[in-house]
């Protein structure tokens, strides 16, 4: 690949990180619309981040260096995951055979540090959140690997770029067809649970006992908390971009058109998250694993069905 391509990829990567908070605000807008409210401005997350970055921090006396390392690592892993993501079908900054496995384990690294930072505070609530985070992500990971097997069977490749950039996604639909719909649903469920959205977790709640991710970051403040928020936006962007690429695999040809289509579909994915949050209530804690298990079952189902077709 030549240098201009690389520069474009890097610019797209930076844009993805910078725009991630904007897209996340769309969810708030949609929820406000359903509630009959005006809702916060679309740039609300930027204001929040700037406010957080200007503050100082309060650290618990129980904490160690892990508490400070947690936000940094979770932000970096999410940002690094975006490096492998073909934004709008454009080739990503990094791509190699097996990079999907690398990304999944990299996000695992981020999770490890988030959990460790939560355990550092000696708070019973944060421990509870950490245990749930560790639990639910196990099933999510199984789902993602199931989807990966299907994609590998379809394309013979193990990189995100092969699935999502150029005409790769269209190829997926042509060979697999309708079962891919189940994959999209499964992936959406994983999106909801990995990014702690309703019905798995409620990012807006103020009852610590029922929370998963929010409760783990109770003690973080100031720039540290800003890092965590930014990391969460990046992670949400990562999953949403994959879903949107799967929904609309078309390449209009012209780069500008391409970008517009991508943004439009991305917005609709965020809106779908917002709609889900508006129309559904949070599940009881013991129902959550069942919900996530459905995503695994769907992915498994899609794989078996597709293989029947392929024969």
């Amino acid at each position: 690949m030549n240098e201009t391509d690389m520069i474009v990829s890097v610019i797209l990567w930076l844009l993805a990180i910078l725009l991630a908070p904007f897209f996340a605000a769309v969810i708030l807008k949609v929820k406000a619309f359903f509630g009959g409210k005006k809702g916060p401005p679309l740039l609300i997350h930027y204001y929040t981040l700037i406010k957080l970055f200007q503050k100082g921090s309060v650290y618990s006396t129980s904490t160690t260096f892990m508490f400070k390392l947690g936000p940094v690592v979770s932000l970096c892993t999410a940002a690094m995951a975006l490096m492998f993501l073909p934004v709008a079908g454009y080739r990503p900054v990094l791509s190699f055979n097996g990079d999907v496995i690398f990304i999944l384990y990299l996000l695992g690294l981020g999770r490890f540090f988030t959990i460790a930072a939560a355990m550092d505070t000696a708070s019973p609530f944060e421990g509870m959140g950490a245990a749930r985070e560790a639990y639910f992500s196990i099933i999510c990971e199984a789902t993602l690997f199931m989807i990966l097997i299907l994609f590998f069977k379809l394309t013979g490749d193990l990189s995100l770029a092969a699935y999502l950039s150029g005409s790769g996604t269209l190829g997926l639909w042509q060979t697999a067809g309708s079962p891919l719909l189940f994959v999209v649903i499964a992936f959406f469920i994983v999106l909801l649970s990995e990014n702690s959205r309703v019905p798995v977790d409620d990012p807006a709640t103020h009852l610590e006992l029922t929370m998963i991710h929010e409760v783990m970051v109770l003690d973080h403040s100031g720039p540290d908390f800003g890092f965590i928020e930014l990391g969460a936006f990046c992670k949400l962007f990562f999953y949403s971009a994959i879903v949107s690429r799967l929904i609309a695999p078309f390449n209009p040809g012209h780069p500008v058109l391409n970008g517009c289509l991508f943004i439009a579909v991305l917005l609709s994915v965020y809106a779908a998250v917002g709609v889900t949050e508006s129309v559904m209530a949070r599940y009881k804690m013991d129902k959550v694993p069942k919900f996530i298990l459905i995503s695994f079952v769907l992915a498994f189902f899609a794989t078996i069905i597709t293989l029947e077709f392929l024969r």
Binding site: P179, K290, I305
Partner: peptide, 22 residues
């Protein structure tokens, strides 16, 4: 290529899943 029948049949399979889950 995918037939319409196959889509319908996948729905049937899905309904078995739902019947187990409910």
């Amino acid at each position: 290529m995918i037939h319409l029948v196959d889509i319908v049949l996948s729905l049937v399979l899905l309904s078995i899943l739902l019947s187990f889950g409910s």
